Amino acid sequence: MKTITSRDNPLYKQLKLLAGSSQARRKAGRAVLDGVHLCEVYLQQAGEPEICVASESALALPEVASILDRCQSHRVQRILLPDNLYAALSQVEHGVGLMFLVEVPAAPMPARLDGPAVLLDNLQDPGNLGSILRSAAAAGIPRIYCSRNTVFAWSPKVLRAGMGAHFLLQIHENVDLDAILRTAAVPVAATSSHADHRIYDIDLRGPVAWLFGNEGQGVSPELLARATHRLAVPHLGAVESLNVAACAAVCFFEQVRQKTA
């Protein structure tokens, strides 16, 4: 294991740039996984990272030692940092002291939308996106299409909210959703507070592409016009609408209910 003690070390500078800059991560096609859970899921679902970074204090933790041993057996580059240098990289307050640098998977774009999927139009909140990814993975929906203005799916906050769901999904970013919808071979269900039908009123047992919009404006009128179904999630309380991540979870698991009833 290589120990780095200087902030001027070239590799440390590179890691700090990637850890702190979404633009740098996008350009490099890399993601930073911070914490034992994300690292464990990555090892289970995706393989070995490019670099494994640990803090000195984390070496005493059995779960960290186990991950470091696996990385060593697969000849992964391992970096040990003093706690203060590690803290300057990490965005997790009171974290464990372990992170991976990994390559962002390049999922091949299908010729057309012909199976279960989630389409996200201009979603802005990382927590919402991560929660939707987690719910989609739990509901068995394999593909995610993010519009050009949707938050970066591999940002640290999205990764933490997704809790490892990223590695169970095929995520496509910077997608022209209008072009995808024009040739869709499956029904497209969009949520809208002004819809005439409820999610409980249609048959969801077959493949469906779910379309969700921006936290404030919802699905754009142009995309909403291309949806096969415009649906509402009914609620009894005196609130205008659900949070988009909560709405997505309700939709996904109504579909699960219908499929397993």
Rank of each mutant, 00 (worst) to 15 (best):
residue 111 A to M: 12
residue 146 C to F: 03
residue 51 I to W: 00
residue 108 P to T: 09
residue 82 P to W: 01
residue 188 V to S: 00
residue 149 N to H: 02
residue 176 D to P: 08
residue 84 N to A: 13
residue 204 L to A: 09
residue 168 L to Q: 15
residue 126 P to T: 03
residue 45 Q to N: 11
residue 63 E to A: 02
residue 175 V to L: 10
residue 38 L to K: 06
residue 133 L to C: 07
residue 146 C to V: 04
residue 23 Q to K: 10
residue 234 P to D: 01
residue 97 G to S: 03
residue 12 Y to N: 03
residue 173 E to P: 07
residue 230 R to N: 10
residue 98 L to K: 11
residue 160 R to S: 09
residue 239 V to T: 05
residue 14 Q to Y: 14
residue 175 V to S: 06
residue 164 G to I: 14
residue 249 A to C: 08
residue 12 Y to W: 10
residue 161 A to H: 15
residue 249 A to T: 06
residue 202 I to R: 04
residue 11 L to E: 14
residue 184 A to I: 02
residue 245 A to H: 01
residue 54 A to M: 11
residue 231 L to Y: 10
residue 85 L to R: 14
residue 63 E to I: 02
residue 172 H to L: 07
residue 226 R to C: 13
residue 132 I to N: 08
residue 4 I to T: 02
residue 220 S to R: 05
residue 139 A to R: 12
residue 107 A to K: 10
residue 28 A to T: 07
residue 183 T to V: 11
residue 171 I to M: 14
residue 96 V to A: 11
residue 219 V to D: 14
residue 185 A to L: 08
residue 127 G to I: 04
residue 184 A to L: 04
residue 46 A to I: 04
residue 225 A to W: 14
residue 189 A to C: 09
residue 146 C to H: 03
residue 101 L to F: 10
residue 236 L to F: 13
residue 107 A to Q: 07
residue 84 N to K: 12
residue 183 T to N: 06
residue 261 A to G: 13
residue 162 G to E: 12
residue 243 N to K: 03
residue 22 S to C: 11
residue 18 L to I: 08
residue 176 D to C: 05
residue 32 V to K: 00
residue 248 A to F: 03
residue 82 P to L: 05
residue 80 L to F: 02
residue 11 L to W: 04
residue 125 D to R: 14
residue 72 Q to M: 12
residue 170 Q to T: 13
residue 44 Q to K: 12
residue 152 F to C: 06
residue 16 K to H: 09
residue 52 C to E: 05
residue 4 I to D: 02
residue 109 M to S: 00
residue 142 P to W: 08
residue 196 D to M: 09
residue 80 L to V: 07
residue 223 L to S: 01
residue 243 N to H: 07
